[in-house]
Design a protein around this nucleic acid. Structure first.
Lengths: 333, 333
DNA sequence: ATGAAAGCGCTAACAT
DNA sequence: ATGTTAGCGCTTTCAT
């Protein structure tokens, strides 16, 4: 059942059917109704490929993230998909992994699908932030379609970044830890992404401004697996720390497990703060204070801007969003 | 830059270019290399829409799930996407929600994209299992394209189901609980899906076979939110139970929180078993015994079968897969 | 307001 | 082995 069939059955030309399908005003109400009736009767659906050929668009958005099985990204993807669908767009999902080469390949491949825009979820796509070399492939993609970063910053034409002010929020919470008497705060991370670096920056700034030394031994990068983190910490017998600031809740829970294994009271003997306000942070015992980077807000702003850009409207290239501290385990701040 | 340009630059016809693009054997090695060179030089990408029009396929698979922000589904989607991409297929993601009407609409809309196959993730798509009325829309979809269920069973032509034997594994674990002395086992669930019903069936069977009564008061359906579950249980002061069998780890963690609030020792005073072997089950304290329904295995089988079906090969319509009990908090079994 | 017809860029049957 | 050409089903000028 194609447009010719409908045209024949409705006694009009295919141009008229096309006009009805595309809701053109240049059709009389009468014929419009007739065509619609025939369409419904035969439940006709325009062929998306033919339509795509003509319009050079299939109304689809590419969503790329390193790994949807990560709670944070899964949440963002779910949110994005829902809102984009609301605008009639389909989402093509591509999980790229974290390696540079794979990320480049992901953008290359997904672009072949002639998506209308690209959304990159996760700060891994931000390189070291701004315009460094490792993000050249993103600028290349942006030559063809608008690119939107969620929680990352990349500068360039046709590139729009929404990110949370991780440096500031990290600075704030680490300052509070220091002011409540902590002196050896372990910085626990699983990545060297833009976001992780921002957090580190805030952490170091807080230390410096409070006259504390920035110690390499107190910066630990590890895998984001609860038991792995616990075991790493247990194995570092010589490492002394009175608190932990983790760049992800999963890591923070690992620290909780470590505390349990060592018989340390939380937060009295070991103060732990996580990041992302995920379900993990309320599963453990005690439940953790964590920084909510409001990914919903980032996604919302991004979708709003994306729609505007597709309509040719101007939008800011950069939108910083503030994080929110969620206090749960805070006898001292 | 289209196929005509390439043909002209390479000094051949578009048919030859097309043959090269599609890796046809009927091109001489020499011209093939020449065409490839021209293609590379201009980095030409065939237009997917035109290709789709001709082949009536854009090499894409529709993945529908109620909600990707759910850990279980996110894991399955990540796995599916990865493997399908390995075969050169793109994935169009559609989060349908749990309501019948929305699920029907999801299948209707995603089919318009002329996907090559449909994968439904989550037992919510199984209705009450088998061939009940509520799954009519799935059979309708299957008239056009093959449909694959992950963790659900729907019968019908062109429908393929891979599911875990939740009834058996539930029976086994509940039997163990009874044999270790538990008498009032709370069945905690958040859904009335096929899978949930299977679990309930196993639970009831175990009770009956051990001469215990099946009590309505011990079957509780609630929202899958940790604190909500805790509070519901706390509010049921009259409800007596010595153990909990939850159909999802999130619910089980809620029970853990309840135990903490009431000062009950786990598992001595309250034995808790979860489902899905998610990260949640190792975040809480103590870490939970849980049933791993091996979703990776379900996904693997599904992708294998999907590829075979697309090639026209025969595959079983139904593949049951055994769950695995992951013991963590088991002083008594 | 409606129709005729020329693309859109590709695939594949057919011809050479 | 290679080329010619007719679709694929739609959008969109350009006539009327």
């Amino acid at each position: 059942m194609n447009i010719y069939d409908i045209a024949r059955l409705a006694g009009v030309s295919i141009a008229t059917v096309s006009r009805v399908v595309n809701d053109s005003p240049r059709v009389s109400e009468k014929t419009k109704q007739k065509v619609l009736a025939v369409m419904k009767e035969n439940d006709y659906t325009p062929n998306v490929f033919a339509r795509g050929l003509g319009l050079d668009s299939m109304q689809s958005i590419g969503i790329v993230c390193p790994d949807v099985s990560d709670v944070y990204m899964a949440g963002a993807v779910a949110f994005l998909e829902h809102r984009l669908r609301g605008y009639g767009y389909d989402c093509i999902l591509y999980c790229s992994g974290y390696q540079q080469e794979k990320k480049e390949r992901a953008l290359e491949l997904i672009q072949k699908k002639r998506i209308d825009a690209l959304v990159l979820v996760g700060s891994t796509y931000a390189g070291r932030g701004g315009d460094d070399d490792s993000t050249g492939y993103i600028r290349e993609a942006a030559e063809n379609i608008p690119v939107f970063l969620i929680n990352g910053k990349v500068t360039g034409k046709n590139i729009y970044s929404a990110y949370s002010t991780d440096s500031d929020s990290s600075y704030d919470v680490v300052s509070k830890m220091i002011e409540s008497g902590r002196r050896r705060i372990l910085f626990l991370t699983d990545s060297g992404s833009y976001s992780a670096n921002q957090k580190l920056e805030g952490y170091e700034k807080a230390l410096r401004e409070h006259g504390l030394p920035v110690l390499g031994e107190l910066k630990l990068r590890t895998r984001n697996e609860v038991h792995y983190v616990r075991d790493i910490l247990l194995s570092r017998r010589a490492l002394v720390f009175d608190s932990v600031f983790a760049t992800d809740d999963g890591l923070a829970v690992g620290a909780v497990k470590y505390a349990h294994a060592r018989g340390l009271k939380i937060p009295q003997e070991l103060c732990i703060v996580g990041y992302n306000n995920s379900v993990y942070s309320i599963c453990c015992e005690p439940e953790l204070t964590t920084i909510d980077n409001t990914s919903e807000k980032l996604c919302n702003i991004t979708v709003d801007n994306l729609m505007k850009v597709l309509k040719g409207e101007a939008v800011p290239e950069e939108v910083p969003v503030q994080c929110v501290l969620v206090k749960r385990c805070t006898t001292d701040f």
